[in-house]
Design a protein around this nucleic acid. Structure first.
Lengths: 350, 350
DNA sequence: TTGTACGCGTTATCAT
DNA sequence: ATGATAACGCGTACAA
């Protein structure tokens, strides 16, 4: 009897073989145990509707008994669908990105996709490497941060022929799809918020990443349209932090007369400025009104003196997920360019 | 001539074939173009030392020309090494986890590994699903949060036969390796810090996840050893947040006389308590001393009235990475149980 | 140093 | 509803 089962095998040879997973059972092992073909097992697991009720149950039992775990490397290779979505973000150390990534991961996970995460640390060259590395896993879709990418990245991505969502920014000419908001408009809104309150003496503290600089640009432009020039513009490193905000405010205080109002390109910078102002006995917002960006949760209660600009990070993540799932599901998304907008949160009348 | 090259092919048929990547070039395509075997190309890419200088250059040229991107699904299947490390964390929305994950990702990336991230949201059952999902990618190693896992998880993991690092906690009997610190000791340190300052009337606000509760346990034990019982113990949801901290402090204030000192199991809770105290005109630390945990960067400048307990999150991440790389590299780690310790950061003498 | 040949575990196609 | 068989793209003994 050449193809006999292992029943009756002496315990001394493979004692654990029938109890725990011996050594990574395969589809073929399950099939053998049940007495069906591998194809049937594969179908039972991925398209249960195509398999008869009773064989499906027997297969399930065998799967449990063997502790069978499907090999998605093999599955992906055969089907050309990895069920993997790659996301490349500058950092997960700020809620700006982490909340969106969490939401993205949740939504994708619910649909059977997993998240391959690349963290670029705000370095352009690192994005290049990460894109290359990540594409070698043959992800079914790709999420990128921002709309500026090196030619190499653009080339690789076009060659990959998968859906791509650029996030946290907006453009009329995305690589594929884009979901975010206009940083120029955010900067304008910050400026207008202060101008509308009657301020004319306004300084700017901006981090040096591309999107922060575009917020600064929008701000300066809006001021110009009101016949104003910024009191001063201070550029800090990226990412903006509380410490950098303190330093920048100190520089502001020591290099000339304080402005009447201050635009910071992010809440951490704004919080730092606020902190330094307090230390120096400068009243916020009475002496210096400060507006930030990002609506970081800490600031809501800790820094009620700050005004900020909020966008919905979770909406960003879920929208990106939805776009991807639509495309992968063969549905056409309602729109490939999604502006999730933002709103000014004035916590004080200042 | 049966195996002819595509030279001389009329442009009208495959015009782009010789310029851009036509449609996912494979190793075989590269080999054909160079006129060597696929094996040689494979070696040139993964073990350059085994290939002659000049053929390696020609291969590199062909790779560039075709825009060849290796398929790691196939590679992983063939070699049984995915170059993937999976990590499962409750959240990336707090620096507690995000910084460690960032460091982990950096270190692994530098060694040629990529990070497959699962976010469990503090749900035990979700960890089960994620482990199963993640193991189907055949990761070369696994990073888990904490030391308590369901039997199903333990079984699956043992069956996977890969290095595992449990993080953010400590035990003498890890699944495989562990890097973190003792939460009981953190709780004890918090209590002792206050007791040593002469406080005897101490309350506790704790989140309800396992590690936070163990910090509470350590705290209550240490108090008992000094003949003290906590004024009150308030349990909040997980994860602890500024809002929950405010609510808990309000409850404390309204349900009886305020304690003289307060232990919070995390900094967000402590910041919330501090905020609510301020709102109620309660001086911190003169009327109520507050100690938190986690050393969240925001608290350093914003809440100088708080004492906190710090552990090195980046050290945690890099140690985990090092353990994994050691094992995967065939080196034996110095120790499979790493206590990274912690320190009390007293920001005020209170 | 290079080539040959096989296998990795799964899905898809085409029968039955 | 189920089975046989051929890919999928690559790594790796083994041979040359």
């Amino acid at each position: 009897m050449p193809e006999t089962e292992s029943h009756g095998m002496p315990d001394s040879i493979e004692p654990a073989a029938e109890r725990a997973a011996p050594e990574g059972a395969t589809l073929a092992d399950v099939a053998r145990l049940v007495g069906v073909s591998a194809a049937t097992v594969s179908r039972a697991l991925s398209r249960p509707g195509m398999v008869s009720e009773k064989t499906r149950k027997r297969i399930q039992a065998a799967v449990d008994q063997l502790g069978y775990v499907p090999n998605l490397l093999a599955g992906g290779l055969a089907s050309n669908r990895s069920r993997l979505v790659a996301a490349i973000v500058p950092s997960i150390g700020t809620t700006m990105f982490s909340e969106a990534v969490e939401t993205l991961s949740d939504r994708l996970g619910a649909a059977g996709y997993q998240l391959l995460l690349g963290i670029s640390g705000f370095h352009r060259s690192r994005e290049d490497e990460l894109v290359a590395a990540v594409l070698s896993r043959r992800p079914d879709a790709l999420v990128l941060t921002g709309i500026e990418h090196s030619p190499a990245v653009r080339r690789q991505i076009m060659g990959a022929r998968i859906p791509v969502v650029e996030c946290w920014d907006l453009t009329t000419s995305p690589l594929d799809m884009v979901v975010g908001f206009s940083h120029e408009k955010v900067g304008r809104a910050a400026a207008l918020c202060l101008v509308n309150k009657g301020h004319r003496d306004i300084a700017v503290i901006a981090a040096s990443d591309r999107r922060a600089l575009r917020r600064r640009d929008g701000c300066v432009e809006a001021l110009a349209e009101h016949g104003l020039a910024p009191n001063r513009v201070i550029i800090t490193e990226t990412p903006g932090s509380l410490a950098l905000g303190r330093k920048a405010f100190a520089e502001l205080a020591e290099s000339g007369p304080l402005p009447r109002a201050l635009v910071c390109t992010s809440d951490p910078l704004a919080e730092g400025a606020l902190t330094e102002a307090r230390v120096r006995g400068v009243d916020v917002p009475d002496r210096v009104a400060i507006i930030g960006f990002g609506d970081f949760p800490e600031s809501a209660s800790m820094a009620p003196a700050l005004t900020t600009i909020r966008f919905d990070r979770r909406l960003l993540g879920s929208t990106a997920a939805q776009l991807i799932l639509d495309v992968l599901g063969g549905r056409k998304p309602e729109a490939g360019i999604v502006d999730i907008g933002f709103e000014v949160i004035a916590r004080e009348t200042a």
